[in-house]
Design a protein around this nucleic acid. Sequence first.
DNA 1: CTATTGACGACAT
DNA 2: CATGTCGCCAATA
Length: 103
Amino acid sequence: MSEILLTDFEKKVLQELEKVPLGRVTTYQNLANKVGKPKAARAVGNALNKNPWAPRVPCHRVVKSDGGIGGYVFGVEKKIALLKKEGVAVRDERVINFEKIVF
DNA sequence: CTATTGACGACAT
DNA sequence: CATGTCGCCAATA
C-alpha cells in the first residue's frame, strides 16, 4: 500500500535529499534553500524526522550548517558511524570535512 | 484559529 | 569555544 501521507514540503525535501551522492553531506539550511524556503531549516529537520523511507533516503548525510551532526532517528551515534564509513571525517559529533558538503 | 513542539540558524555574551 | 536568546517555518493537538 503506497499512499502519500506527506505534504509537498516534505516531499520536496526528501527528493532533494535523494540527489545527495554518497561520500558527501548536505545541510538543513541547504535543503531548505533548495525547496525555496531558506529560513525553513527547522521545518526541514522535522520533515526528515517523519521520513518514512529512513534507509531509502540518505537522511544520515544531513548535518547542521555549522558542522554539527544534528540528529538521527536511529541514534546520532549510528549516523556518525555511517558518515565515517562513507568517507566523511567526524570528531565529537562535529563534521570536519566541510569540503565534502554539497552546496 | 491558537498553542506547543522540534533532526535549525544567526547573533550576543 | 560554550551557552543563551530570538527568529523562522511546518506539522500536530
